[in-house]
Design a protein around this nucleic acid. Structure first.
Lengths: 209, 209
DNA sequence: GCCTGTGAAAGGATTCACAGCG
DNA sequence: CGCTGTGAATCCTTTCACAGGC
């Protein structure tokens, strides 16, 4: 049990949580670390060490109670309540994200959508109305939103990120294919499939050509 | 210069490449490591050390030539030719991915789309026809495809992954919110926004509630 | 002077291996 | 006996700091 937990450990917690929820859905009530380890392709020691940063959740000789561990992880990750989200940019991608059920299922609720295209304003996606981006700051402040999903073109991403941060956003999930400049006090994470694919191709051999 | 390069270094190369392409688009011809470092929010030493695994690409007193370094990184990452891709699952997300320009722009071309819904078969997205999933293995073998993007429901992901691997796929980019069982000789990477958001919330405080 | 490339040092993360408990 | 939790050992990554070159 340790006060300051390495970020690399925190990153793995949501992955553990996802497996545990799946086990729970399958009716599994307890599981030892080496079963989780096998499912995830990592070592059992790492799993036990990771949990040990937060307390003692297991039972010798038996393993972990799935239900109990799930609850603990949700508490640790602050996902024991619903987090409201805003999505900025309702193009193809933003639209698909707004329709995506996974957010709801994992404790996030999309409460606002913004776009700069007047033609889209007033339309609703998944029962959430699209508002003009002029109202971005007002809505963030009104709902005290902390998390934004950024799905605008790369050329606009930095400028929108500045506006989000100025309005009080503390976490940005960026889908634009640009590395956003770091901002103090703000957690910025990136999703870019081409970055991941280029990492893969390092290990692959181009066929003919 | 080293034979075996740590994976963590390889993971950063696509990020460097993206910044360099951006600099090139802006007309910047050379840049020192500390400028790249500042843009990315990491240390200059790390950048120089990363490059040093592959050779000596810089000039003392001047930095790196953007054009030259770009070419070197593309070669190292095996993205100096076009990689063909297949997308499996053409729901909201698969559709958005099929429309996404970023793949083309970064050296990937979508050559086939598959879905199990007969109503979708025959429709085209971005000029690529949707085929029934029965033809999956045949097309993968015919085009000798190595990379697949998986955008099917979580419940089907493991089964489809098995089929992909049996047909010769070596890299899977998985969008389903399940951790796929590891398969020997296959690189599996995951994109799951809720995992990233749950990592963020660890560092945020839930407001009232 | 500015900047790279790199050994050496420092700092982290993972695995080992086992005491201790149910 | 099976499994957790954990110090110790190992392994890996980053930073430091500077020689050497433009």
């Amino acid at each position: 049990m340790n006060i300051d937990v390495p970020d690399i450990v925190v990153r793995r917690l949501p992955i553990y949580l996802r497996v545990l929820r799946r086990l729970q859905a399958e009716g599994v009530e307890e599981t030892p670390s080496h079963m989780l380890a096998k499912t995830l392709g990592i070592s059992a020691a790492r799993i036990r060490k990771d949990f040990s940063h937060f307390g003692e959740f297991g039972q010798q000789g038996r393993g972990y109670q799935v239900k109990k561990l799930t609850v603990e992880l949700q508490r640790i990750l602050h996902v024991d309540n619903i987090w409201p989200l805003v999505i900025v940019g309702v193009g193809q991608l933003g639209h698909a994200l707004a329709m995506y059920d996974g957010f709801q299922e994992n404790g996030f609720r999309i409460v606002a959508l913004f776009d700069n295209d007047p033609a889209k304003v007033g339309m609703t996606v998944n029962n959430v109305p699209i508002q003009h981006i002029d109202y971005l700051e007002g809505e963030i402040r009104r709902h005290q939103l902390q998390i934004a999903v950024l799905a605008v073109p790369a050329s606009q991403a930095e400028a929108i990120a500045d506006r989000l941060v100025a309005a009080g956003i503390k976490g940005i999930l960026n889908y634009a294919n640009i590395t956003l400049r770091p901002r103090p006090g703000v957690i910025i994470q990136q999703i870019d499939p081409t970055i991941i694919l280029q990492h893969m191709t390092y290990y692959l051999e181009q066929p003919r050509n």
